[in-house]
């Protein structure tokens, strides 16, 4: 039977939910066994999290100091050294996976399939092209390892309830020193990550200023939501880049997306079209976002947000 190796994404202390979503995709290829490898430094707790996911056979850990930061040039040779026994090597199509997986594929001398959104059979997959404006069905070659990234917005996280074996793996791979990690500047704070949050509150140019975004933050905190923004709001300097949702930002699929003052440019809609329920609040009844919203309200967001606060028991 064929086997899948999933490269775990983590931040050094916790497993990223993208790993459980990648697992959900891997569960549909009809493989005999799915293993997860955690490349990290001091990664026992992360391995334990991975082992608790239902459907995982083994969790392999490669615990070494060089793996403290997620540098693709350092991780790829280790992943490639482990890939020999596997017919599939999957990673999430987050910036982590996009950076790393092609490097693994090139080391193995095989092509890569990016952004799997659906598995049709063991070799046939659907993926978006042209920013999701077309969906292509692709057949992968059967006689070689398939390295692929999984579009996390297309999958729900696999459930817990497993008890996989955790094994320490040693890999014989020369690691380069030409790439060095300096730092991560994070603007996110304690709010849920956009790509895994179940509710996302988002603001556009209509919010008007960085100060005005505060009312979105406080609403988001009340709902336990992540906060996103349109490209217009990012370009206007209201919020940092990593909050941008859309074709050139993050593609997300929360259960509930609430858009305040976002007109709904195509490039933004591309980023949210897999959301469960889309709510749009905009002063302009002609705003294109109403064409795809499940619930629309033509109103001033500065009146709606305080009223929402009140009615939700603020």
């Amino acid at each position: 039977m064929s086997k899948v190796l999933i490269i775990a994404e983590h931040d050094g202390s916790c497993l990223n939910l993208s790993t459980a979503k990648t697992l959900s995709c891997a569960l549909t290829v009809g493989a005999g066994a799915i293993d997860i490898v955690v490349l990290g430094s001091g990664c026992d707790a992360i391995a334990a999290e991975a082992a608790a996911l239902a459907g995982v056979a083994r969790v392999l850990t490669v615990d070494r100091a060089e793996n403290a930061a997620p540098l693709a040039a350092v991780l790829a040779p280790q992943a490639a050294a482990l890939a020999g026994d596997y017919q599939y090597v999957f990673g999430p199509s987050t910036t982590f996976g996009k950076d790393l997986m092609p490097r693994i594929a090139a080391l193995l001398g095989v092509g890569q399939l990016s952004d799997i959104m659906e598995v049709l059979d063991a070799q046939t997959f659907r993926r978006p092209i042209y920013a999701g404006n077309a969906i292509v069905t692709v057949k992968a070659p059967a006689n070689q390892t398939l390295v692929a990234t999984v579009r996390v917005a297309s999958y729900r996280a696999a459930e817990a309830g497993g008890s996989a074996v955790v094994e320490s793996a040693t890999v014989d791979a020369a690691l380069p020193s030409h790439t060095r990690y300096v730092e991560l500047k994070s603007g996110g704070g304690d709010r849920p990550d956009l790509q895994v949050a179940s509710i996302v509150v988002s603001g556009g140019r209509g919010v008007g200023s960085a100060e005005n975004f505060e009312i979105l933050y406080s609403l988001a905190d009340k709902l336990g939501a992540g906060v996103g923004a349109s490209r217009a709001a990012v370009d206007a300097g209201y919020v940092p880049n990593e909050m941008q949702v859309g074709q050139t930002g993050k593609i997300i699929a929360p259960d509930l997306y609430i858009a305040f003052g976002i007109s709904g440019a195509i490039q933004h809609l591309t980023g949210i079209k897999d959301a469960g329920t889309i709510v749009a609040i905009n002063k302009d009844p002609e705003a294109p976002i109403f064409e795809i919203a499940d619930i629309g309200l033509v109103a001033d967001l500065f009146e709606v947000i305080p009223e929402l606060d009140r009615q939700l028991g603020g």
């Binding site: 092509g111 399939l113 046939t124 978006p128 092209i129 999701g132 404006n133 077309a134 969906i135 292509v136 069905t137 692709v138 057949k139 992968a140 070659p141 079209k273 889309i278 709510v279 609040i281 109403f290 064409e291 795809i292 919203a293 499940d294 619930i295 629309g296 309200l297 033509v298 109103a299 709606v304 009223e307 929402l308 009615q311």
Partner: peptide, 24 residues
């Protein structure tokens, strides 16, 4: 890789409009 077919994506439908926050 072999391209089997290229299709247009399924599009979302316009939903309902509500009148106020209570309706929302």
């Amino acid at each position: 890789f072999e391209t089997v077919t290229v299709e247009a994506p399924e599009s979302r439908q316009r939903g309902e409009m509500v009148a106020d926050v209570a309706g929302l």
